[in-house]
Design a protein around this nucleic acid. Structure first.
Lengths: 217, 217
DNA sequence: CGCCAATGTGAATGGCCGTTCAGGGGCTTA
DNA sequence: TAAGCCCCTGAACGGCCATTCACATTGGCG
């Protein structure tokens, strides 16, 4: 016996039936779910193509490599996340409390609703080649900096009073903590839970505002 | 050209020089760092054994399979985490606020100090076979339930006042949020940051107590 | 010294990998 | 009808995989 790939035994490459969408989209979609369910390194090009009713070779009419396919997928959802966060903050008026709440609300709703996308974008980056991974990390840093800026404003204006440890603060660490929390809803939230997506968003916004010591509005 | 494994190009299987420790430990240690740096599915048995100065075949004198090796590694750190959490809570007296603070403190310090262990235990579970993965998840659920219990006690005794959304609470979701936050320090914390491990632990304990609306002690 | 068990070696086994490519079909345009 | 293009197929190609196995090597013990 020599079998390989006993890894993640729940294999269901799906039988395939030619996807009606234009092939690029079909491939993207199939790859998305496969990566989400089983992880980039163990999903084979053959798996992906079978799942949308094509054969291995056809992939290379649409993407240069398996690596490019992954980057294409991650970059598009990451870009949209960044845009949504900026928009939410820009449209929330001037009060840092409102900005923070808007940011968290959008971020959490998105991570509940688009669980699969978020999961792939967060779990599979490390398989990308060096230049591609740098591209994604830049976007993440940008999002974190939005948060840090809001926190700073709030402290400056006296509407936030975040914890001080030994007389000092670390707003960057706090921003990371919040993002970790909000990002990973996508790992366990499901429609079976007690709260809807919007309720989750409210809960997280509430917890976050409390954590930074937001004064009542 | 057919090259495989362009994935995570930073390959450094390490040149090897027979590890002085007893072989089982040497293997465990080598596997640990390899898994942490490059991820279970792309690390080969040859890589691991080369890293401790042995050859492929020798692995099977100590472990039944690559899968068993991973489980051995993860289970031992997960078990220790569970024990530490229980101990911290048990030794914190009767007040839910003290229990919660103790829990978070231990959890965060551990995840800062043993970053690599935490990282592997959290990132690589999904590669385990079904029975083995269930074992680990049970332990995680146990840890979550410790938290839920503390939260419940605190609410019952009126020392916590967690957010209500549309008149209802979801303590399980809150516990998950806190764990996500504390767990993922291990993904970015480094000794270069502004805060020490203990300061991080205090910061996180503070944020958590605020989030659950703990009344001043 | 001779024996035995534990432990290590490295070739062999059967198999899957990403990628390429020669050879089609089936459109649209002329 | 013929040409040209887009897209797909499926058989290579060269290579690495986990695991097994016949065969050393080692060191403790009688």
């Amino acid at each position: 016996m020599s079998k390989r790939k006993p890894v993640r035994v729940v294999e269901t490459p799906a039988v395939a039936e030619r996807d009606p969408r234009p092939p690029v989209e079909a491939i993207r979609a199939a790859a998305f779910t496969q990566f989400a369910e089983r992880g980039y390194p163990v999903v084979t090009v053959r798996d992906i193509m079978k799942a949308c009713g094509l054969t291995q070779g056809a992939l290379y009419n649409h993407f240069k490599s398996k690596d490019e396919l992954l980057h294409d997928i991650i970059a598009s959802t990451q870009g949209e996340l960044e845009r949504q966060c900026q928009q939410a903050v820009a449209g929330a008026g001037d009060d840092p409390r409102a900005k923070l709440a808007a940011f968290v609300r959008v971020y959490v709703v998105r991570h509940c609703r688009l669980r699969v996308e978020a999961l792939v974008a967060n779990r599979e980056i490390s398989w990308l080649g060096a230049e591609r991974v740098a591209d994604i990390r830049r976007s993440r840093r940008a999002i974190r900096d939005i948060l840090v800026t809001i926190l700073n404003e709030g402290v400056q204006r006296g509407v936030f009073d975040p914890p001080q440890i030994d007389g000092r603060r670390d707003l960057k660490a706090m921003a990371m903590a919040m993002l970790d929390q909000c990002t990973h809803v996508s790992m366990w939230y499901g429609p079976g839970g007690a709260f809807s997506e919007e309720q989750m968003a409210k809960l997280y916004a509430d917890m976050t505002l409390r954590a930074v010591g937001a004064k009542p509005q």
